[in-house]
């Protein structure tokens, strides 16, 4: 056994310790507000990470990923309105709903290629958007409130720190799963498809099936993120499924680094914290975001994350 930790081992440990200590320090320093901000960052990090599975690992440019995020959120809100408030019941249903919609939408969309795929995923998300707009029983255009956070035995999720820690654990768990998946047989096949799909077919892989499973798993993870965001905001409206929301998730991923395990986390943190700071300053912060994004796309196609993560091997 080695006695010294290398920096590459030390860095994740430091980040985990900092993340665990953050809510307590923030509360102690009177900045309890920032616990909620960081919770939101982590939930978006999870959503962006699920998109990373589709785009960065699966090579599919999905422009409708917010749909599964929104479906998960609505599942929890609707169940709560119908009296189901237990997280044990509602959250798995939200995950299943995200997966089910991804399975159906993916099954049709993955028959198409290139531009068609981008636009058909976009259109399906918009279809769900209008579905929830016209769903008057559950708030229609105005959305629907979640009366109280989901209930768990032993844990009181109304406590910001508890909720923060739970979200942190779920995010860490999903990142670990993604890492395993990327290194597994399945992940290897995804990488092969991303690089050269015709050859994968010629090696005997039913590529459609693998891409569909990838799309569905990502939908499930996005559904979980949705279940968390409605608990965080206490509210969900169709705007959570709007196509600009899908665009926002894409931006996060690009800023963070597509195909890098922590790309979604880095991007969500960069973008939401930038928003937090800039929107205090100016009402035109999206102009700034647009310019940054334009610059990144034109100058550094690998994403901001790739500037920091040159040493990390991808895949």
């Amino acid at each position: 056994m080695r006695m010294r930790l290398s920096t590459s081992q030390l860095r994740p440990a430091l980040i985990v310790i900092a993340a665990l200590a953050f809510p307590f320090l923030a509360e102690a320093a009177g900045g309890g507000y920032y616990v909620g901000v960081m919770t939101r960052v982590m939930i978006y990090a999870l959503a962006a990470t699920s998109l990373n599975l589709v785009l960065g690992y699966g090579g599919m440019i999905s422009f409708g990923h917010a749909a599964f995020f929104g479906v998960g959120a609505y599942a929890v809100a609707i169940l709560a309105q119908e009296g189901v408030t237990s997280a044990w019941a509602a959250w798995p249903i939200a995950v299943a709903a995200g997966a089910a919609f991804a399975l159906v939408i993916g099954a049709i969309s993955l028959r198409t290629r290139g531009l068609y795929f981008i636009m058909i995923t976009l259109a399906f998300a918009q279809m769900l958007y209008y579905f929830f707009v016209s769903l008057r029983a559950y708030g229609g255009e105005d959305g629907i409130n979640l009366a109280a956070r989901s209930r768990l035995p032993w844990l009181d999720l109304r406590d910001e720190t508890t909720f923060y820690l739970l979200v942190l654990a779920l995010l860490a768990g999903c990142l670990y799963l993604l890492r395993r998946l990327a290194a597994s047989r399945f992940g290897t096949v995804l990488r092969g498809i991303r690089e050269n799909e015709a050859r994968m077919t010629a090696l005997g892989y039913p590529t459609y099936r693998y891409r569909l499973v990838c799309f569905t798993v990502a939908g499930a993870a996005a559904g979980l993120a949705g279940a968390l965001i409605v608990n965080q905001h206490g509210f969900v409206s169709p705007s959570l499924l709007d196509w600009t929301q899908s665009g926002t998730l894409l931006i996060m991923l690009i800023l963070g680094g597509v195909g890098w395990l922590y790309g979604g986390v880095a991007g969500a943190a960069a973008m939401l914290l930038l928003e937090e700071v800039l929107s205090h300053w100016t009402g035109y912060w999206k102009l700034g975001l647009g310019l940054v994004l334009l610059f990144v796309v034109l100058r550094a196609p690998g994403g901001v994350g790739s500037w920091f993560a040159r040493g990390n091997t991808r895949g």
Binding site: F63, L250, L289, G290, L291, L293, L294
Partner: peptide
């Protein structure tokens, strides 16, 4: 460039 770059760059233009 690839379609992803086009999507993102023109999305940026919308924001701007």
């Amino acid at each position: 460039r690839d379609h992803l770059s086009q999507v993102l760059a023109t999305f940026a233009l919308i924001l701007i």
